[in-house]
Design a protein around this nucleic acid. Structure first.
Length: 330
DNA sequence: TTAATTTGACCCAC
DNA sequence: GTGGGTCAAATTAA
């Protein structure tokens, strides 16, 4: 009946959904309705839906070539987990202990440089709300400090390909450069982030903005229960003890509310309702007193949403001009 | 016992 | 050939 494969059908459905959402966005974006607050909110929702579709299509379309399934050997000759994808050429005489290691090597695919990347340089390590697991550490040429490699905890259970690299780029004061590769495809975080302005929080400064990513008490999270997790994701220990430690010193946040102080973040100083961080604001560097954020997106979707501007840390009166010396990917 | 981290080896892009 | 990214056994921590 239907000659198309399940993956093709899936892509078709995603495309249909994307087109429908796009039409809805065009309708909502008409001047006649744009001055309506509810229309603006609806437009934001539609944009979120569009992003979800685009990410999904991107994942589906690339998975056969670079997804985790790629690690399944084409020619296994057996189902032994210890034989997945490695070369079968180590029947050599290598009686050294390394021969055992050789057996388990060669079953990964190096990431193409075209994947989405975003870079942050911050004076503190930031908790981005995702659960990361360290999988490597490497000394880099001409670098004083090793580079740490993290992958999403949900790499295997949800196929999330997001990784990040953390490296100290400067010593005095210590600056942490965090590079994110690929967007999260796991349903681990409130995504897109629910940003709620709350200027009434005691103790906030006049030029500070609190952003809440909490979902626990927001009634409209019920509408998205399939996408948003009702509680903040479990953040597993991801910091190595010697140099990585959580940096929420201001303690304005709790594990349930997740309020973060953004001082002097000019992007949020515009009057009027707080805009949802739409795709239009994703590109380029964002400089705030919390650090420098650089985003590089893939060329496939100009409004792809790889940059998770979800959590920042307050560092006080840091001179942001010093960040100009750092090179960025884009 | 389970899960996360460490660390040396392996693989691949340049 | 080299450097960087990833794998996975061993080790450590909870």
């Amino acid at each position: 009946m239907d000659s198309s494969s399940p993956s093709e059908k899936l892509i078709q459905l995603l495309v249909q959904g994307h087109e429908s959402a796009n039409q809805l966005r065009l309708t909502l974006g008409k001047p006649s309705s744009a001055d309506n607050k509810s229309s603006v909110a609806a437009l934001d929702l539609v944009n979120n839906v569009l992003r979800s579709f685009e990410e999904s299509m991107s994942i589906v379309s690339r998975r056969p070539t670079e997804g985790v399934f790629d690690k399944v050997p084409v020619n296994t000759g057996g189902n032994s987990p210890s034989s997945n994808g490695r070369k079968a050429d180590d029947s050599e005489e290598s009686s050294k202990s390394t021969s055992a290691f050789k057996e388990r090597r060669g079953c990964y695919k190096r990431r193409k440089p075209t994947t989405q990347t975003s870079t942050r340089i911050t004076p503190n390590l930031i908790d981005d709300g995702h659960a990361w697991r360290k999988y490597g550490q490497k000394l880099i040429l001409n670098a004083k400090h090793p580079r740490n490699y993290y992958r999403c905890t949900h790499k295997f259970d949800q196929g999330c390909l997001a990784t990040k690299q953390v490296q100290i780029t400067e010593e005095d004061p210590p600056m942490y450069r965090t590079t994110y590769h690929g967007g999260h495809t796991c349903q681990n975080l409130l995504k897109p982030p629910q940003i709620i302005l709350d200027s009434t929080i005691p103790g906030d400064s006049s030029n500070s903005v609190f952003i809440s990513f909490g979902s626990t008490n927001q009634p409209n999270t019920k509408l998205n229960h399939e996408t948003y997790y009702p509680t903040f994701p479990l953040v597993k220990q991801e910091y190595s003890t010697q140099e990585l430690k959580p940096s929420f010193n201001h303690n304005q946040s709790s594990s349930t509310d997740h309020l973060f102080l953004l001082s002097d973040l000019t992007a949020f100083n515009s009057p009027g309702p707080m805009p949802v961080l739409s795709s239009e604001s994703d590109h380029g560097d964002v400089i705030s007193s919390s650090g420098v954020y650089s985003c590089t997106t893939s060329t496939t979707h100009d409004d792809s949403h790889s940059f998770d501007l979800d959590m920042l840390v307050d560092v006080g009166d840091l001179d942001v001009s010093q960040f100009d010396q750092y090179p960025f990917d884009n």
